[in-house]
Design a protein around this nucleic acid. Structure first.
Lengths: 341, 341
DNA sequence: CTGAAAGCGCTTACAG
DNA sequence: CTGAAAGCGCTTACAG
């Protein structure tokens, strides 16, 4: 079997043409050798693969994308990653994507620019879908109001936009809010407070609504307390402020774990004992909530299931009818009075 | 000015050819209109841009990459993101990349597979560089031992591999270790312990070496303590174990903040008062270390400078001579006795 | 099963 | 400043 000479060392990239010469086959054959299920004799494939190995050849995914019209790229659009819930989701998404032979293009957005800009930039890479993590987004336009995929499906993770036609996957925050109320009620709370996050987000709103609803069924209503941001500092500040103004809730529901941890730290500063004097519950079940210093009882989100569902939803496009909700789960630890469920 | 008819609605993507027809110019002109600095009459560019706007056209970055041989894509390779130091670095990298007109391709690796595999997968996307975050890597082959960029520069962030020709950017951990010792010495420590992370990493080794060295200058040596992992649980466990075996250090240097926070929580469990009875210092200055419950004194890494330097190093390829080190900075809080520097 | 050829959507000499 | 044409590295009908 005669072989064509190897390509000159000056050649930068080794291409399928180089390999075809090395293997003594056509360039098409090289392509087929790298295409699972392609019609090619096993022996030919073997020869090609060996030649490729010798030359250090690897198919060019960019060129492939151009002709197949499928880039295999999914955009992950994130803002700040201060809430540890998101990095965790992010790396799990990247892994799940890889397991499906896809790649994650990581893009950032900030509060000042419209997400649309970021999305457009992503679209030039022929992304097959975009997942946006609304770490800094509010529901009000222009930030997220009119996002247009322009042909590519866009999914909002952990948030939904009432009245908009965006795919979205989230935890059933309304049910989670109810669950939090239930847990606090069972612990004997009579004056529970909700320390909210960004009041303009569905996560905040749904959790509050569920919480309030369940409390009402027990003839109670949450202690009046302000909302502001899903941040540690805010949890601390809100709790201190409440105390300073003479409001002493006997239980706290933090809009997420970061806020609840702030509440816990503020309570410690105030010398109030948890859970003996006051119960605290959070939302998300981030790593930090399991620390010995906190042992925060919280409502966990079924992250893996949510991610699988998100990817599935993106794969077969069907009309959006409301957010895809996942049941939350109580994570019992040490910050709520009683012995648990 | 006569116009060619608009492309049929059936056409999936709108291409530069569609725009050229809409604008009544050549396809080359469309390309030039989107190329900053290209030789094109302002009026022509305006016409093209308007036509593009009408048609919703956006240049195809994939096609562009193919011809320019520059993808504009940089791979970010991460493992687990349990240490919050990494997500923070990750999002800052993504932002810094975008500021330079580049994109971040996010890839994951796990401890079982060789990073080489992940890198090869990334290479098929014609990445211009790869940055690996060694969140799960040890220095021993095969995991990281023989990584070959195969033409693309590879940079290790926050770690270096002695004797290997990989670019790397890190904090000067040796100096940081010395600094930690200095701080503890100033606080009057006589029996300081180092609670190590993964002993097989340069971060661990360099910090320990600096720490030991400075201690030796003061005629001291660290209390014998085991090392294992850069994890919260390990910090807790190691501290508890030390205490159970009758070893009572008067100061702790946690190999990173996560470990130091574990130490702090364990100390609290043991009823030992910080910093009155025992001082604790960490490394990294992650968000969590500033929580009221911890107020951890720590050695901060100059993250922004490190990221800029990493990107710069990747841009102009020059022979590697050792890791590029950045000076650490003492973050004084409440876990070390005394009034600070 | 195999190869020659067209074409994916751009950029970039080249000639005008 | 502009257009026609070649070509980036692949995949995929098409014909054998």
């Amino acid at each position: 079997m005669t072989r064509a000479p190897s390509p000159p060392a000056s050649a930068q990239r080794v291409t399928s043409l180089d390999v075809s010469r090395e293997a003594g086959v056509s360039q098409s054959a090289v392509s087929r050798a790298f295409t699972p299920g392609a019609s090619i004799r096993p022996e030919t494939r073997r020869r090609v693969l060996e030649a490729a190995q010798r030359l250090g050849y690897q198919p060019n995914a960019i060129a492939r994308s151009l002709v197949t019209q499928r880039s295999g790229i999914v955009a992950l659009i994130v803002g700040e990653l201060h809430n540890p819930f998101y990095p965790q989701a992010l790396s799990k998404f990247a892994q799940a994507l890889e397991a499906r032979g896809k790649r994650a293009l990581l893009l950032t957005h900030d509060a000042r620019r419209d997400v649309q800009e970021t999305l457009d930039a992503a679209r030039s890479y022929q992304i097959e879908a975009a997942i946006v993590f609304p770490t800094r987004l509010t529901a009000t336009p222009p930030t997220l109001g009119h996002v247009q995929g322009g042909g590519v499906p866009v999914l909002l993770f952990n948030r939904h936009l009432p009245g908009h036609q965006l795919l979205s996957v989230a935890c059933d925050n309304h049910a989670g809010g109810r669950l939090a109320a239930q847990v606090l009620l069972d612990a004997g709370a009579r004056r529970p407070a909700f320390i909210g996050g960004d009041p303009d987000t569905s996560t905040h709103q749904d959790r509050l609504r569920g919480f309030t609803e369940r409390l009402a069924e027990a003839g109670l209503r949450p202690v009046a307390a302000p909302s502001r941001a899903f941040q540690y500092d805010w949890g601390v500040q809100a709790t201190l402020h409440l105390d300073a103004t003479g409001t002493r809730p006997d239980a706290f529901f933090g809009a997420n774990d970061i806020v609840a941890i702030g509440v816990l730290d503020a309570l410690r500063t105030l010398g109030r004992r948890v859970p003996e004097e006051v119960s605290v519950i959070g939302f998300d079940n981030i790593d930090e909530s399991a620390r010995l210093a906190y042992r925060l009882t919280t409502i966990g989100q079924p992250l893996d299931a949510m991610i699988e569902d998100a990817l599935r939803a993106l794969e077969d496009p069907q009309p959006v009818d409301g957010p895809r909700l996942h049941a939350p789960e109580l994570i019992w630890r040490d910050t709520v009075a009683g012995t648990g469920p």
